[in-house]
């Protein structure tokens, strides 16, 4: 299964470094998912993989394909744009759902509501 694209030295260094860096950052985020104690603390670690982890892997992919096809290949930018737009939405919704459930169950250490629901 060990196989690699044929790249010049400088591109190989960039691709290898960025891929490993992105994977390490994502792994740290996943470890945080296990080690944190409460749900509200656990929401934070996955953002590591969503920001820099994805960013580094996509940069590696852009470099690799651009060098191989000797023209700028930018379609990975689509994933970057999509991930940056969507992950905040999912996390916000999830946090709000958790807060809603905690409030309706009367859990103590969550902040109360602002009175009337006035959010969007």
């Amino acid at each position: 299964m060990i196989q690699a694209p044929d790249l010049p030295l400088w591109a190989a260094i960039i691709v290898g470094l960025f891929v490993v860096l992105g994977a390490v950052i994502t792994l740290v985020g996943a470890i945080g998912l296990i080690r944190m104690e409460t749900f509200y603390e656990r929401v934070h670690p996955p953002t590591l993989g969503m920001t820099l982890g994805t960013g580094f892997v996509l940069l590696a992919s852009i470099t690799c394909f651009s060098v191989m096809q000797s023209r700028p290949v930018l379609h990975e930018v689509l994933i970057a744009v999509f991930v940056t737009i969507t992950t905040p939405i999912t996390l916000m919704l999830l946090a709000r759902a958790a807060l809603y459930r905690d409030r309706s169950e009367g859990v103590q250490d969550v902040p109360g509501d602002f009175g009337d629901e006035g959010d969007d």
């Binding site: 299964m1 060990i2 196989q3 690699a4 190989a12 470094l17 891929v19 490993v20 994977a23």
Partner: peptide, 11 residues
């Protein structure tokens, strides 16, 4: 190529 392949596999 070998180092790059190892890096990708490690990732």
């Amino acid at each position: 190529a070998l180092v790059l392949a190892l890096a990708i596999t490690a990732a």
